[in-house]
Design a binder for these strands. Structure first.
Length: 558
RNA sequence: UGGGGUGUCGCCAAGAGGCCUAAGGCAACGGGUUUUGAUCCCGUCAUUCGGAGGUUCGAAUCCUCCCACCCCAGCCA
């Protein structure tokens, strides 16, 4: 504090600065944030940023974060989404304070406040239909005009609002509107709709209500009821803030929350719009909201991405007011980083080529570390036999390939079988169709866990499995869902940008024996190939989803 | 062009008048280690901060004007 060159505290993002300031000045005693999803779809990677921010802020300042569903529109919401969202937030590793909350818990209070505004001449029942209302609202550059119902006596509006609430008014016939300013430069202040008639069952309140509050009339009041101190939302709500504040100022609320906006996450090659994701589901482009190609939390989970990787990625993102597009490579980096540190290693031959080790007397059991840098993760046994499979791509008939360019098997040269012997390729055996059917090799004795004798320098290391003592498996290889990096931008026909190769199935791969009963929820690194996680149920045949490939610095192809 | 917001390396960003001839991460590119062409390690990567003026001994940081992009005209959130 005496050194002028030493700043008092780490700067942090702008919201952290505001919170520290609020705490210091006493404007706020306790930090309370909230994550307020609408249950109209599944959570995606963009929501994860908001979740990490809101829960992170609460944890950082010793406060609480609430999970509250903004369920004010029964037309689009459902219990299925509520359940999925709760599961996803938990899986991400966050705990909310108190019960799961719902905007619908406050419908009674919200209605009381609506009556309050009516009684105080600050709201009125309007009978303009949607088209007329749009016309009266004016445009960006022209002020709006007062609704002919604007000066209706409070008592009359009150009676009408009660009729709306009772279900005596048809949808579209009336709305409750705030009486603010039809000439406001901010269009949100031109007498916004507070309540609309919706004769539709709500997933929690059933048919109790026939009117539902709009977002603007609900959100700030929900925050106030819950004592939310910092209501953090995305940039597109900035224009709604004056309205948020209008309610805070004009209603007898139990607390005065404040809204702050930050830039939402955009990722190239990725769609983060529930509307568009729902379209992919509805059109059958993908399997469902949890299709492994989806950027949803459930899709990423099924894909084999860990919650920790998602959290680390989110924490690497800036909380600022710029709306940039983050390169998907940045997310992939955190996925790989986490998996590299934690994924047990195993071997899988994707495109099997039979190898006969002609000088192998009898099978044996080798053992291999589950992780090259973490001995505490233990070892597993690797059956070695005279008949093996290696990947067809790991052998070439072109003997002119340099050792540097092709670190795999060629006739006459050596290669190390990962965790096993050094072998030499002796001859190609062809089938009747002329294709390579088998490779005859010979092992160099004494080279398990040891270098070869002089003159035996393997070109590289390749993976393999025993032919008999291995398991057949199906592999589902995923690639990006969209061909266009800006799939999320504009309305360029979404379905025309789908990558036709986003999923390819390998029906006849072979995985090492230790994977015969691979558990669900564990992501393995199939050495030299990529990260894979078990799909389906534990009793099914073996199917693995590709989580993500290994980084591959120019696999020189001869 | 009414209101609101944003512009710093290919991408994300720190930066709050001198410590900036501008952090860090991703990507890329060199090199080293390696029984994964992975990991790891080491190195390279903005004389410049959307542009033009101005203030100042001194500006990415202050002022003025201009330019570009994003959001708002749902009885969606």
């Amino acid at each position: 504090m005496t050194d002028p060159h030493q700043s008092a505290a780490p700067a942090g993002n702008f919201i952290e600065q505001i919170i520290r300031d609020d705490l210091a000045t006493g404007r706020v005693e306790r930090v309370v944030t909230r994550f307020p999803p609408e249950p109209n779809g599944y959570l995606h990677i963009g929501h994860a940023k908001s979740i990490c921010l809101n829960f992170g802020l609460a944890a950082q300042y010793g406060g609480d974060c609430h999970l509250r569903f903004d369920d004010t529109n029964p037309e689009k919401e459902s219990q299925e989404y509520v359940d999925a969202i709760i599961a996803d937030v938990q899986w991400l590793g966050f705990e909310w304070a108190g019960p799961v909350r719902y905007a619908s818990d406050y419908f009674g209070q919200l209605y009381e406040w609506a009556l309050y505004l009516v009684d105080n001449g600050l709201a009125y029942v309007c009978e303009l239909n949607a088209e007329q209302m749009r016309d009266y609202r004016g445009t960006l550059t022209e002020p709006g005009r007062a609704s002919p119902y604007r000066e209706r006596p409070a008592a009359e509006s009150r009676a009408l609002l009660e009729q709306m609430r009772r279900g005596d008014i048809n949808e579209g016939k009336m709305t409750l509107r705030a009486k603010i300013d039809m000439a406001a430069a901010n269009i949100n202040l031109r007498d916004p709709v507070l309540y609309r008639v919706r004769k539709m069952a709500h997933h929690r309140t059933g048919s109790e209500w026939s009117i539902y509050p709009n977002y603007d009339f609900a959100h700030g009041q929900e925050d106030a009821i819950e004592g939310v101190s910092h209501s953090v939302c995305t940039l597109e709500f900035a224009a709604n803030r004056p309205l948020y504040e209008w309610f805070v100022d004009n209603l007898p609320l139990p607390s005065k929350p404040r809204q702050y906006e930050f830039g939402r996450l955009n990722l190239n090659y990725t769609v983060t719009s529930k509307r568009k994701l729902k379209k992919l589901v509805d059109e059958g482009v993908v399997d469902g909201w949890d299709d492994p190609r989806m950027p949803t939390i459930s899709g990423l989970r099924r894909r084999g991405v860990s919650a920790a990787a998602i959290r680390q990625f989110c924490n690497s993102l800036a909380v600022a007011k710029t709306d940039g597009v983050v390169d998907i490579a940045q997310f992939e980096h955190f996925i790989r980083d986490d998996l590299n540190n934690n994924a047990p290693r195993a071997m899988c031959v994707i495109n099997p080529l039979k190898v006969v080790v002609t000088n192998c007397q009898q099978g044996e059991l080798l053992s291999a570390a589950n992780h090259p840098n973490r001995p505490e993760l233990g070892e597993r046994q690797l059956p070695f036999d005279a008949e093996l499979y290696i990947d067809a791509g790991d052998f070439s008939e072109d003997t002119t390939l340099s050792r540097k360019k092709f670190k795999r098997l060629v006739i006459g040269d050596y290669v190390r079988l990962r965790g096993g012997y050094i072998i030499q390729a002796d001859e190609v055996v062809r089938g009747s169709d002329g294709e390579i059917a088998q490779l005859n090799c010979s092992l160099v004795a004494g080279t398990v866990g040891a270098d070869g004798p002089d003159g035996v320098r393997p070109r590289g290391v390749i993976h393999w499995v025993s032919a008999q003592r291995s398991q057949p498996a199906e592999l589902r290889l995923y690639d990006r869902l969209f061909t266009n990096p800006e799939a999320d931008g504009g309305d360029g026909e979404l379905l025309e940008q789908i990558n036709p190769a986003s999923l390819s199935v390998v029906a006849d791969a072979r995985v090492e024996q230790s994977l015969a009963e691979a558990p669900l929820g564990v992501t393995y690194q199939f050495e030299r190939e990529g990260y894979f996680t078990r799909e389906g149920s534990a009793s099914d045949r073996l199917v693995f989803n590709l989580t993500i490939g290994l980084r591959d610095s120019g696999r020189g192809q001869g």
